[in-house]
Design a binder for these strands. Structure first.
Length: 854
RNA sequence: GCGGGCGUGGCGGAAUUGGUAGACGCGCUGGAUUCAAAAUCCAGUUCUGGUGACAGAGUGGGAGUUCGAUUCUCCCCGCCCGCACCA
């Protein structure tokens, strides 16, 4: 029995695709466009199973759409700036550029063994000046259009990476890469005005119908829109006013204090003459922002002695505290506290002995007797103790009080967002230099466009201490482009999410002189289908949506949403093992003897842990290269698609891989060991076809129909199941029935075409075996289902008595209800249950079911 | 705390708008082939009882709507994910 030779075939057909330029695209094709994109990888060194899954999913979509007649753009590139290159430089004394380029070469080679249908002529790497010079131009355009500003601000400082992090990069108070607790520091930073687009980004979510609800919701929460009011409190003995933000202006009559953040200008000012306050503020800044820190931290306040005048109650003055739970970067960094209707305010009031005045009482409650002790009342109700608001419900009171505040010119209706502007400055070497020059006389001077790119210096010493660009002896020293006097370059580089925020647009014309080629982006964008991990739900995917709008403002493109469809794939998981000492073990270090596992070398017992995401630290990784070497790319691809829906986690199992491998060989044998199908193609349908062959013929067309639908909806696992079912049917077809050869051949051709997007090399080999000469499946159209074969003349109808299945009957399609009823009642089992009595009722659902109610 | 999702055989997972639960695969059992093994092929495989035909139960648990519920409603349990001192 000849096994399928995957090594020979995979090389052969990859070469054939490349020689014929199968996957190179152009804009002139007279076919509808389809842009499918997978999130490009960071070139960390080698591809991992997550890549294999991601790129297999994308490749199936790309090949399927191509077969369906679309002009498919399917590019690949490298998200090549980032910290690991600098770490490698420190450890191995290799320049980051060399390290990155070597990794790219390795990973490109690995990806090519997977047989992915990329247009490699469009490959790009973000660390090359040919890419980032355009990024610098875009930044300067953003600057011109008022989308960029610099400001001194409190930032998240990662003490391990020695750099600033964006809010989106702080997970649970820790750096998203380092895992270290983030500190607050004040630095001068460049910001992109993503908040200008908060409303648009929020509204745009509605239009993203082909995005997972989960991601849409996460972005919605991240943007965090709330409606309320800004209110200005006059301060006793001072000229300035305190501006607070509240979503409950209706509770103003219950106010008993005001509080400002530790970093609030008022707190800062007062601390200069008050050492105790200065110490309190310093303590606040030291406090972590992690979950644990927040949970355990006491709500602390420091009474500044300043009093705020109540806007409506003459003579009522509220103490102004500095409080550790008030955030400077939300609202205006100041609040008023209404203890009766906010739990945290209540806790604070109880701690510091402040008044608790209820101003909303449940409908029908005795207003005079309604008191609050240790649980705040948050529900709707009617206002009490509130002068002109008394008797109103919460919504009406809000509206009324804001009208009054506006009339008095001490407050305004306001919408507030949780979203912050995107700080893009990073104190790193391996990133895109920010094209700005700081001049003592002229201030901030953009690098003139003709001087772009500002290239990274190659002779760099990376020590890990501080910013290497700032430490370079000459790089930062330039003459001011405006006045010619000595000046200094900006030594910060961009956050690496900057590069990935527009690469999908660059792929449309990756060799253009301008950042984007208007005709090309107008043709290709938006990306029709984007595929990648859920971990970018609020980072990359939100930044890209913002960038697209910003690029539109600068006249680069016309779309607002970059990704029309989004598929978020699950993780690739694998069993974990620990030895007796609790140390993680590689799967290869474990041997199974009966039901128990033992260490391969020592024989000591091993505990099998739960399946978790493949990671080096847990030692449960499987190297794709080894799998492709042992089984071939098609086996790996098929396995990735077979077992789990793409958005769910996938459990890697050796048995599953074996199963995929066995199926490939089964199909191979079915084609190569059966002489009849190898006859020349194109023979007409024979006059006589036996019923058994006719059934297979119907199965063929139903499978085409079903698989097409599954692939449209990305139900790859169901498509594989259907293909295997058809394989069983074709294999089971007896030789001696009329028309068997012809039907079998059609079945094998169909199977070949249907499986081609998933196992493209095998499909080419089968196509060749089927006598197709030099025709490539990659250039062959998707099969069409003949509607005539999709319907059956006879339907199998289930018969139930009182909802319990008693048997099935064969009925002509769409037959009369009384015929169905009679046939069902004629069943012995139905009769025995009825016991001679007439049925109380019979429900007939045509072509599906007859339910007899006894 | 807020928001969202999920729960189906030994396992991964299928089941149109409510209409034959367990497709397809993995694993397992028995058999064929083989000197033997691998590979391959055939048969079986939700659970319980029964040699068997068959009977009963069954989609996390409990109630409800319905002729009929994995699917819809309510309550509870368990697991997972996101956000989190957001005023």
């Amino acid at each position: 029995m000849a096994r399928y030779n995957f090594k020979e075939n995979e090389q052969k057909w990859q070469a054939a695709w490349e020689d014929q330029g199968c996957f190179q695209v152009d804009e002139t094709a007279d076919r509808p466009k389809y842009y499918v994109l997978e999130m490009f990888p960071y070139p960390s060194g080698r591809i991992h199973m997550g890549h294999v899954r991601n790129y297999t999913l994308g490749d199936v979509v790309a090949r399927y759409k191509k077969a369906r007649g679309f002009n498919v753009l399917h590019p690949m590139g490298w998200d090549a700036f980032g910290l690991p290159a600098e770490n490698a430089a420190m450890e191995n004394k290799v320049p980051p550029a060399d390290w990155t380029r070597e990794n790219i070469a390795t990973m490109r080679k690995q990806l090519k063994t997977m047989g992915l249908s990329y247009d490699w002529s469009r490959e790009l790497a973000t660390c090359e000046p040919g890419y980032y010079r355009h990024e610098q131009k875009i930044f300067l355009d953003f600057l011109k259009h008022g989308l960029v500003y610099q400001k001194e601000s409190w930032v998240n400082w990662d003490p391990v990476e020695n750099t600033v992090l964006a809010n989106e990069q702080v997970i649970d108070g820790r750096g998203w890469r380092s895992g270290e607790l983030v500190e607050k520091r004040q630095l001068s930073q460049w910001f992109l005005k993503i908040t200008d687009y908060a409303e648009e980004l929020l509204d745009g979510i509605e239009t993203l119908e082909r995005w997972p609800d989960r991601v849409r919701l996460m972005q919605e929460n991240w943007i965090g829109r709330s409606e309320g009011a800004h209110v200005h409190f006059a301060l006793e003995g001072r000229d300035d006013r305190l501006e607070i933000y509240t979503t409950r202006p209706d509770t103003l009559f219950g106010a008993s204090f005001c509080a400002v953040a530790a970093n609030h200008p008022l707190a800062q000012e007062l601390s200069r003459t008050n050492p105790d306050l200065a110490e309190f503020i310093a303590e606040c800044n030291r406090m972590g922002t992690s979950e644990a820190a927040i949970e355990t931290a006491e709500k602390l306040g420091f009474d500044t002695g300043v009093k705020a005048r109540h806007p409506f109650v003459d003579g009522k003055a509220l103490p102004v505290y500095v409080a550790n739970f008030v955030l400077m970067d939300y609202g205006s960094g100041a609040i008023f506290g209404c203890p009766a209707h906010d739990q945290r305010d209540l806790d604070f009031a109880n701690k510091y002995g402040l008044d608790v005045v209820p101003v909303v009482a449940p409908k029908g409650a005795d207003a005079a007797g309604f008191t609050i002790t240790d649980e705040a009342y948050l529900e709707d109700g009617l206002h009490i103790n509130s002068d002109f608001l008394d008797g109103l419900n919460v919504a009406d009171a809000k509206s009324t009080v804001i009208d009054r505040l506006e009339a008095m010119e001490i407050g305004t209706r306001a919408v507030n967002y949780r979203l912050r502007d995107w700080g893009v400055s990073r104190q790193r070497y391996w990133g895109c230099p920010i094209p700005i020059i700081h001049c003592g006389d002229c201030g901030i001077v953009p690098v003139p466009e003709q001087d772009l790119p500002v290239e990274l210096p190659v002779d760099i010493d990376i020590t890990g201490a501080g910013n290497p660009l700032a430490a370079h002896p000459t790089w930062k020293h330039v003459d001011c482009p405006t006045c010619g006097k000595p000046a200094q370059r900006e030594t910060d580089t961009f956050d690496t999410f900057f590069e990935s925020s527009w690469y999908f647009a660059r792929f449309c014309a990756p060799h253009a002189d301008a950042p984007l080629d208007r005709a090309a982006v107008d043709h290709w964008l938006p990306v029709d289908q984007y595929i990648g991990g859920i971990e970018h739900a609020v980072l990359h995917l939100l930044y890209s949506r913002f960038f697209t709008r910003a690029l539109k403002k600068c006249g680069y493109l016309s779309v607002e949403e970059p990704f029309a469809g989004l598929l978020t794939q699950g993780m690739v998981c694998h069993q974990t093992f620990k030895d007796a000492d609790g140390k993680w073990l590689l799967p290869t270090q474990v041997v199974f003897d009966g039901g128990s596992a033992a260490h391969a070398d020592t024989g000591r017992p091993v505990t099998a842990g739960r399946s978790e995401k493949m990671s080096k630290s847990k030692k449960n990784v499987v190297d794709p290269e080894a799998i492709i070497e042992a089984y071939g790319a098609d086996t790996a691809r098929l396995f990735m698609l077979s077992d789990s829906p793409p958005d769910r986690d996938l459990e890697w199992t050796d048995a599953g891989v074996d199963g995929a491998w066995r199926y490939l060989n089964r199909l191979w044998r079915l084609v190569t060991e059966n002489p009849a199908p190898r006859a020349a193609p194109g023979a007409g349908k024979p006059d006589s076809i036996d019923g058994a062959a006719e059934d297979v013929l119907k199965a063929i067309h139903k499978t085409i129909d079903g698989v097409s639908g599954d692939l449209e909806k990305f139900h790859f696992n169901k498509a594989v199941a259907r293909i295997r079912e058809l394989t069983n049917a074709v294999e089971g077809l007896k030789d001696d029935v009329a028309g068997a050869d012809w039907v079998r051949r059609l079945g094998l051709e169909t199977l070949t075409l249907l499986i081609a997007p998933m196992t493209p090399h095998l499909a080419e080999a089968l196509w060749h075996e089927l006598g197709r000469g030099n025709e490539l499946v990659a250039d062959t159209a998707w099969p069409e289902a003949d509607p005539a074969y999709l319907v059956d003349d006879l339907m199998t109808v289930a018969v139930q008595v009182n909802g319990k299945l008693k048997g099935t009957i064969e009925l002509p399609k769409d037959c009369a209800q009384d015929i169905a009823e009679d046939a069902a009642l004629a069943l012995d089992k139905v009769q025995s249950v009825l016991g001679g009595n007439p049925p109380r009722k019979v429900i007939v659902v045509p072509n599906r079911i007859v339910n007899v109610v006894a």
